[in-house]
Design a protein around this nucleic acid. Structure first.
Lengths: 383, 383
DNA sequence: GGATATTGTGGGAGCGCTCCCAAAGTGATG
DNA sequence: CATCACTTTGGGAGCGCTCCCACAATATCC
């Protein structure tokens, strides 16, 4: 203990390095809670109470402690806090390696942005974890449990992913971005893929297109299936004939969009519109159309999904379905925070002294942990 | 609110959701080092030595401990370890808010990927920190110092950024991606902007272009100035006349590429090639060219910089300069890890007794901490 | 006026680990 | 057979915080 004190006793307030000039001054000694307490002439517990905003502190004392905190430039050590409190004040955003392509999309940046800003409000830290191998993926739940993080945010979940279950088993709160199936038991935040696809196709039909095809995403992703479902619903709603040859399977890659389009052109030369389940596939399809000498949108109208960067830069710019990405990120963070008890939706309201019976949840919207956000059709030149 | 405590004791979703929770399995009990020690019939110190790979353990003991670790499924608690060891085993990748546009670029994903994979090798965690406001930016150094992280990686540094200096003052090891000036004192990893630009322009000249213009990036970014310098060098090397009207200022945005191109076309109608300091500006320039009825590359050849997503999707695809992004990320992580002494054991933490004569400025004369990686010209249809 | 609440406050007891020192064990040496 | 050098091991002493219990110091009541 004496050793600790030395660093400070030697030369005045530790964090006045601003006064002594850059790089020249005192050693970068970080004051501890104990030192703040001594300075303020109070006990450790009291300082702890003040910095945690406990109401059980007198005004006088609080002011004294705050002054000491300022003078010393005290910032609590999060590691110590985490150890003592048993919670890390950090959550991990987990991305399986194969999904890193995904990074380059505004999608990812939007999620990140939303998550980050919501987390900042709760003063929690964001850990980014790329799982490079299947082994890492399997071990992740175990590591996560080593108390370094309080919860997990999972993006780009596939139907056969086991990680969510591993996390559930390990009792680690997790929120998925998207769901694995219609009956996803875990908390998730998704967008209305069915509705978005439906709106896109309805738009094409309203525009006068007769033969509307689609290029789908990989069937092991629920979002892809939903988009295909939306397509079918819109076709049915319009009373158009259902034709399975108008449905080309893709896998969200540009290449699959290209080959899917070629297949469609070969099977059904008369198509005059295509709904692609992703913008990237639409870009591939656009190339195939150009190769086939079809003009967009005059010969074939094109609509994508995602509103990614390529959409705006295609020629003509691509009509597409936008997801409320930033909001999805925020929502994921909120759901997780709520799960952790770190965030109360109605925290601003006076505390409910006597809560009435469990408030009945609106049907469909289900519990607070299953959320589906609306999409929006962005019209551009391709349709 | 006592929500947190309530959650733990009361039986909410968080941790102690009950031994008889919904999933019914074993209670989520995390074994401690102490328990492993007991199980293996050894002392805590010995277990610690084993899990940290100390050589001072007999084979017999090591085997016994490892068996106990396996049986119990022991994973060290990183928080406790960080507190005891005084280092957090985590570094932060910091991104100022205005740069989030940057996210949507393969650039960012590449850096992230490189950083992440190198960090994983060193078993360090990656904290992603978006600084949403100037205030957050100013406070960051202080927070960072609160021992949650060992070092910082900074991307997209501007000439007038003070954060790097704040970090240096707080003695927090930091590595920049790019530099603020030719005389950057802090450790950095950059790519050869001058060489890349030079190669791009030389390529245009070799191709037979007579009047090569450029649209530059914002002058407050050193990278932008370097690219402009590279342009000038190549012009000079080829013996072409230097003409300041061939240099249009931009700011890396599409809009500035557009207006820059219009200005160039107005001032020097005869230009037959343009080197844009970023792909995004090239996209803007491309639009202006189309508006002016100039064909690419027949009338005007176009080259960009960055090899971003737009480059591949332009029509024609854009010739551009690629940076070894993934490798830059890796290199940043390596430099930081080296700075932290993660390669050599025995890192003295709080206040070394009497360190002989360490250079007072960690980022002093650097060879190992100042790295410039080569770029590569990617030829596509636009030139 | 004495008993009982109420509000503030100090500080002990950890959280799970690393660091380090002294003790125990081992073998070679004179 | 005592001595010394080395290896291996156990466990005390924290790291900086939160939690919580006891103990003031008032305030409230019959």
């Amino acid at each position: 203990m004496a050793a600790v004190r030395d660093g400070q006793a030697g030369g005045g307030p530790p964090t006045l390095s601003g006064g002594t000039g850059p790089l020249g001054g005192a050693p970068p000694h970080r004051p501890t809670l104990e030192q703040v307490a001594r300075r303020a002439g109070v006990g450790r517990g009291t300082v702890s109470r003040v910095i945690n905003g406990s109401p059980r502190v007198s005004e006088r004392t609080r002011a004294a402690v705050e002054a000491a905190v300022d003078e010393l430039g005290y910032v609590p050590n999060r590691v110590a806090r985490a150890l003592a409190a048993g919670s890390a004040d950090a959550i991990a955003l987990v991305i399986p390696e194969p999904e890193t392509r995904f990074f380059a999309e505004p999608y990812f940046s939007g999620i990140l942005h939303g998550v980050s800003s919501e987390l900042a409000r709760a003063d929690m830290q964001l850990l980014l974890t790329l799982l490079h191998s299947q082994k890492e993926q399997d071990r992740f739940a175990q590591y996560a449990a080593a108390h370094r993080i309080d919860g997990v945010l999972l993006v780009s979940v596939h139907a056969d992913d086991t990680l969510p279950d591993l996390l559930a088993e390990a009792r680690i709160p997790a929120v998925l971005n998207g769901r694995r199936s219609a009956a996803e038991p875990l908390p998730y935040v998704d967008c209305d893929n069915v509705g978005g696809a439906r709106a896109a196709v309805a738009h094409l039909i309203a525009r006068g297109c007769e033969t509307v095809a689609t290029i789908t995403g990989p069937p092991d992703m629920y979002a892809a299936r939903c988009r295909a479902d939306g397509y079918r619903e819109a076709i049915r709603d319009a009373g158009h004939p259902e034709d399975e040859l108008l449905v080309a399977p893709g896998d969200f890659t540009e290449e699959s969009g290209h080959s899917g389009m070629r297949r469609l052109l070969a099977d059904r030369p008369g198509i005059d519109a295509v709904f692609c389940a992703s913008d990237v596939m639409a870009a591939g399809a656009r190339i195939a159309l150009r190769e086939a000498g079809r003009r967009v949108p005059d010969d074939v109208a094109l609509v994508g999904f995602d509103d990614s960067a390529v959409a705006r830069h295609m020629d003509p710019p691509l009509t597409t379905v936008r997801q409320p990405i930033d909001e999805m990120g925020r929502e994921m963070a909120r759901v997780l925070l709520e799960l952790l008890g770190k965030w109360t939706p109605g925290a601003a309201y006076p505390a409910p002294p006597a809560q009435p019976a469990p408030s009945p949840r609106p049907p469909g919207a289900g519990d607070r942990t299953h959320r589906v956000l609306p999409t929006e059709l962005i019209r551009r030149g391709s349709s």
